[in-house]
Design a protein around this nucleic acid. Structure first.
Lengths: 339, 339
DNA sequence: CTGTTAGCGCCTTCAG
DNA sequence: CTGAAGGCGCTAACAG
């Protein structure tokens, strides 16, 4: 029914091994025989069975990509870029989308990727248990993070420094009451919110501004959460004149909260995000940009290199730069405000 | 090194066949033996090699999902929902992200999914050649479309009717000069823009409004394209008083164009989109909603059912409803305008 | 340069 | 209910 390597071999009048060698571009086959086999294989519509060749060779030509939520802009963009790099190199990608706790548990207990992938790119690793589970796969690993992680190739921005730039921008504009929308209590205990908060605290301290816990709100890294968080901040007795949202999506939610309160950025309150989301420009949102697709492609490339040169030392930690993008949501504090 | 089924068999004092049966929950194994084997397998950290079991059984427990751009909100959201359904059912998903023409060509010439998947969900099928290539895989197929497609389970909205609702809303508000931002000349010749344009023309004709080609602009289904398209429409001698954007992302671009021209929706011009993008609410965009994640989950479920009951008749064409979501970007035409 | 010989690890008969 | 035998389709030595 389905055409196999022996069918091609028979039709071409050679042995199966020769077909295998010819089609995979290995040397040791005369040019004319190779050409012949190529033609015959095409005629028959032959494609090698990945299962069979994986079983025989031990290689899968497949890379596992673990994503928290493909639907989220950041992860979708990273995945898009990474898949392009893997696909161009002849690798298929197995996607594990671990949005729900059940999916996450299922993945880490059953480890469906075991023996199925040559490498894994995990965009998010919650804790050391998950890291260990991944390490137990015995394949090259990459992840996104703000710090090095043993056994992983790590790509990421300096979250703390990025947050510092954001808050410093607000301080430079003359703001003293600066709020923050973060994500500490989200379902995922990853370190990004912690590092970004640290950057916020750093700059406040530097500028001699006392830290007011009432000016911190949790936006859970979602649009809706950002809206709620901004609403909270507006209800504080003495509201902030500027707010740093740890992600653009939360900043967008914050923008909506302002609109609902008949307020505007930057007239009533300044707002800065972090990411440079594709819609940040549409909204005129001032933000700290990070190269999202670029990081995905870079992580993919580093993983491929490890596959090609298993002996070379793993790359370790690659940090990519962020930069301030001035748009329309930040300005000096309004003079009439009570400050 | 890596633990195989014979290792488990030896450790449990049974044969490999018994281990295979026990672990896959097939009957014909006594409860106590099964329990024992389960324990031993867990201890040893055994996971069956998918390559080997696929080779032996002919089933892959894998579903291929073909996506034009994972990074785009619509496709990312659909993929997210579909992956959750597949994953919960014990299937892995192989992702083929065909954003570039090269990736597309590579996929359709090499057919890397052949012999690797039990079914395929292709979010976009350009033409009959691609459809035929997919059919040649000999597995259950599903896709998103506005019309039935032989050999595929099709899920989708009624694009024409959806567009009609959008334009009818504008007509009902009293608009007579109604522009449209579409996507006919995009790189992908899929039929969505055609169907939505038809809906636009239908309502104009119904309302006795002559069709003015100058009021149609191409936004290529991207944010940037939407911005350019709206800019074009504003430059027309007698600009529209209302605009229907065939997608929310184009509508968002249009909103930005308005802002840059110091104009506002709905004060200067009414705007309606189609999708109900996650950020449409943030922007207050009036739109026609379609259940995006819902459609992804539905397509996945239908595919799984075909896998479980191969004899049942394939579901054919499932059409899901759209509905008008009134927000802040549409209003009756401004009285002072030259009408 | 090419063919032959063994498996890769598992599932599926077929016996018992 | 369980074990033994064979083979899925391919690749990797090893001979020629």
């Amino acid at each position: 029914m389905t055409v196999s390597i022996t069918d091609v071999a028979r039709a071409a009048g050679v042995s199966a091994s020769t077909v295998s060698r010819a089609l995979r571009g290995r040397q040791g086959v005369s040019d004319e025989v190779r050409a012949q086999i190529t033609v015959v294989a095409a005629q028959l519509g032959y494609t090698a069975s990945r299962s069979a060749s994986s079983l025989a060779s031990g290689r899968t030509s497949t890379i596992g990509v673990v994503v928290p939520f493909v639907g989220r802009w950041f992860f979708g963009t990273v995945l898009d870029a990474a898949e392009n790099v893997f696909g161009a190199a002849g690798y298929d990608v197995l996607l594990y989308n671990l949005g729900s706790p059940e999916a996450r548990t299922r993945f880490f207990t059953q480890m469906p990727a075991r023996k199925r992938v040559d490498a894994v790119l995990s965009l998010l690793v919650h804790d050391e248990d998950e890291a260990d589970a991944l390490r137990s796969l015995g394949v090259p690993l990459a992840t996104f993070w703000t710090a090095p992680r043993p056994g992983f190739t790590v790509v990421g921005i300096d979250d703390r420094a990025g947050a510092q730039s954001a808050v410093r921008h607000l301080v430079n504009l003359g703001h003293r009451r600066i709020g923050m929308i973060g994500g500490t209590s989200g379902p995922l205990h990853w370190t990004t919110p912690v590092a970004r908060r640290q950057g916020y605290l750093d700059v406040l301290a530097d500028a001699g501004i006392p830290h007011d816990p009432a000016l911190e709100a949790d936006g859970g890294y979602t649009v809706g959460g950002g809206e709620r968080a901004m609403t909270e901040l507006l209800a504080v007795p003495r509201p902030p004149t500027a707010v740093f949202a740890q992600s653009d999506e939360m900043a967008m939610g914050a923008l909506r909260a302002l609109r609902l309160h008949r307020m505007k950025a930057p007239d009533d309150i300044s707002l800065i995000g972090l990411d440079d989301h594709e819609l940040a420009e549409v909204l005129g949102l001032t933000t700290i940009a990070q190269p999202v697709a670029g990081q995905g492609a870079e992580a993919a490339r580093l993983l491929l290199r490890q596959l090609q040169e298993p002996d070379a030392a793993p790359p370790g930690h690659v940090q990519v730069p962020t930069r301030l993008i001035l748009r329309d949501t930040t300005a000096p504090p309004h003079p009439r405000g009570p400050q």
